[in-house]
């Protein structure tokens, strides 16, 4: 299958799954990532905001109204522990309009570079605490791939395709939930160390419970290596 057909197939599948189910909402999910490397460590500072623009509950009419979701400010420090492996620790501060949440993050990442694409496996555990809810403990696995849309490598002024696929297991009190995410993105290397990406961030959760929830965000990511 050619790269172009694979991209199209994935977009269609991700859309079809969403349209066939019940409750859905979504909006915008922009993020800014600043990365700095020093003495074997990499530091990532990230700001991300979630804005809702539509809500489609099962028993009511669809509504298109703007609703502020949340803002995340996070920092992550990673260190290589082998040729292709790294560990990372981080902290996230979240304001959701009603309360502050604190999240502590631990990650193990394996990155492999093949002839014409890259593959990264990431295992994450995180713990989220707030004053108004019980703590949430999550175990996540994500596989991410990136390949150039022209040539064998991504160079400046070239496009690439990135696909993330993640499974998130969450436990809060006695409640368990599974969330699955699929994120197909098109990226562009503006300059060495500066990338911009745009794509769909699709999330499905609560599908083990009665009412499945689908979320569609237009993701816009900006990366800059300082």
């Amino acid at each position: 299958m050619t790269k172009e057909r694979l991209c199209l197939t994935l977009f269609i599948v991700s859309t079809a799954v969403g349209l066939s189910q019940s409750r859905s909402d979504g909006g915008l999910l922009p993020s800014v990532n600043l990365i700095h490397k020093s003495k074997g460590y990499a530091y990532n500072f990230r700001i991300e905001s979630r804005q809702f623009v539509f809500n489609d509950p099962p028993s009511e009419r669809s509504t298109f109204t703007y609703d502020y979701g949340l803002t995340d400010i996070s920092g992550l420090v990673s260190k290589k522990v082998d040729f292709d492996k790294a560990v990372a620790l981080g902290y996230l501060f979240r304001w959701n309009g009603n309360a502050i949440e604190h999240r502590f993050i631990q990650q193990f990442i394996v990155t492999r570079k093949y002839t014409d694409f890259k593959l990264a496996h990431r295992i994450t555990t995180d713990q989220t605490f707030s004053q108004i809810e019980a703590p949430i403990y999550r175990l996540r696995y994500r596989v991410a791939t990136e390949f150039p849309l022209s040539g064998d490598n991504v160079d400046v002024n070239e496009f690439y395709f990135k696909l993330n696929h993640e499974y998130l297991n969450a436990v809060q009190g006695s409640q368990y939930d599974l969330e699955i995410r699929i994120l197909p993105f098109i990226g562009y290397e503006i300059a060495a160390g500066i990338n911009i990406e745009i794509g769909i961030d699709y999330r499905v959760n609560s599908f083990l419970a009665k009412e499945t929830e689908h979320r569609f965000f237009l993701g816009i990511n900006w990366f800059k290596v300082l």
């Binding site: 490397k37 990499a42 990155t111 890259k118 991410a144 791939t145 990135k162 990511n221 290596v225």
Partner: peptide
């Protein structure tokens, strides 16, 4: 000098 992979690692 390999191109960084931060966009698929973080």
């Amino acid at each position: 000098m390999e191109r960084n992979s931060f966009n698929i690692q973080f």
